[in-house]
């Protein structure tokens, strides 16, 4: 099970968001809160390492990383697929 708090932990490792993570709601647009393109790449790599997953090409876009809730759902979906 992937918890929202796990996603927040990963976000705190990012230079562009670490100062504001605790003020974010689960549905805030991270790109509006300071996440940039290179930051989203770092986020993608950090999530892959933390959860031992690989994002498919179709998920490599801003949308998959736009809010904490969407990230949690995407990561949970990938974990389920890999377990199946």
């Amino acid at each position: 099970m992937v918890e929202i708090s796990d996603i927040r932990d990963v976000l705190k490792s990012l230079e562009s968001l670490k100062g504001v993570v605790d003020t974010l709601s689960d549905d805030d647009d991270l790109f509006e809160k300071g996440l940039d393109s290179f930051g989203s790449v770092q986020l993608m790599l950090a999530l892959e390492e933390r959860f031992d997953i690989e994002f498919p090409d179709s998920a490599l876009g801003r949308r998959s990383f736009s809010t904490i809730r969407i990230i949690r759902d995407t990561v949970a979906g990938l974990r389920q697929q890999e377990a199946a």
């Binding site: 393109s37 790599l45 090409d57 490599l60 801003r62 949308r63």
Partner: peptide, 14 residues
């Protein structure tokens, strides 16, 4: 690389 795929997708989406 794969990170580049993401950057490319972002660039197109915007």
């Amino acid at each position: 690389g794969r990170a580049g795929k993401m950057l490319a997708n972002n660039q197109r989406a915007q």
